[in-house]
Amino acid sequence: MIDIEEMPGHLVRRFQQIAVAIFHAEVGKTGFDLTPVQYAALARISTNPGIDQATLAGLIAYDRTTITGVVDRLVHKGWLTRTVSGRDRRARVLRITEEGLDVLRRIQPAVEEAQRIMLGGLTEAEAKDLLRLLHKATAAANDLSRAPLRAASTPASDAD
């Protein structure tokens, strides 16, 4: 029988638990209640204004049916707007608000500190190697995920 401590899935799950705990601790110090997925959504929308929810789900490798709840919470907080697309009435167009941009700016140092803490047991070279190998492994298995990462396309502006 294989020792679970030698299984990449087990180690990745443990590291994810640790990463989430560190993220919450560091971002919580800023006074904001924000999950890692909410942060990823805000960050991607800030660099892709006017994207729809399905595209957002692909950009952060999140389940399309579950992304609605994430967006709902961010809209409720006043950090995003969601409007019906002028091109496709089924699609919802997302834009970050000024308040949402302010939140991103204010929590950025905490997010960066969380990343440093997560990699704190590694040398700089080891941290770069870990990130490179994680990118390589996730890219190789991306299509096996129930929520694969999808590259951003450049849709025409949705001027509603």
Rank of each mutant, 00 (worst) to 15 (best):
R116M: 03
L104Q: 08
T68G: 00
W79P: 05
K77S: 15
A40H: 04
K136D: 01
R13E: 11
R116Y: 05
M7D: 09
R89I: 09
I107S: 12
A61F: 07
V20G: 14
G86M: 09
T65C: 04
V111P: 05
L133H: 07
L80E: 01
G9C: 02
F15M: 08
L122A: 11
V37L: 05
L131H: 06
L59G: 10
D160K: 14
G86E: 07
P36E: 02
V111E: 01
L119F: 06
G120V: 06
I96A: 11
Y39H: 10
L34G: 05
R87A: 08
Q38T: 01
E26V: 03
A43Y: 04
A43V: 06
S145Q: 12
A41F: 03
D160G: 14
A19G: 14
L122N: 07
R150V: 14
D129I: 00
I60P: 09
L119Q: 01
L134S: 02
V12C: 04
L134A: 09
R150L: 13
R44L: 02
F15Q: 00
I60R: 02
D88H: 02
T66G: 13
G50V: 01
H24L: 13
D160N: 15
G28V: 03
R106I: 06
I107V: 12
A137R: 10
S46Q: 04
W79N: 09
L101M: 14
T35P: 02
R89K: 15
T66H: 14
S157T: 06
K128F: 00
R116A: 09
D129M: 10
L101W: 08
Y39D: 03
W79K: 11
S153L: 09
K128G: 00
T81R: 13
R73S: 08
T83L: 09
A54S: 08
H24R: 15
P109K: 05
R95A: 13
R132T: 09
D160M: 13
G50N: 04
T66K: 15
W79F: 12
G100K: 03
L42W: 04
P8S: 01
P49N: 15
D52E: 01
A41E: 04
Q16Y: 11
Q115F: 07
R146C: 14
E98W: 07
Q38C: 08
E98K: 15
G50F: 00
L42K: 00
T123Y: 03
R13Y: 13
L122R: 10
T66M: 10
I96G: 11
A141L: 11
M118F: 02
M1Y: 10
G9F: 01
R87I: 04
Y39A: 09
G120P: 02
T68V: 00
Q17R: 15
L34D: 00
P155S: 08
L101F: 15
N142P: 09
R95Y: 12
A152M: 07
D88A: 12
D160Y: 12
P49M: 10
V103S: 11
I18Q: 15
L144C: 08
V103G: 14
E99R: 15
I96R: 07
R150E: 08
E6H: 06
T66E: 11
G58A: 01
A19D: 04
V84Q: 13
S46L: 04
L149W: 07
L74F: 08
M118K: 03
G31E: 04
E99Q: 14
L11D: 09
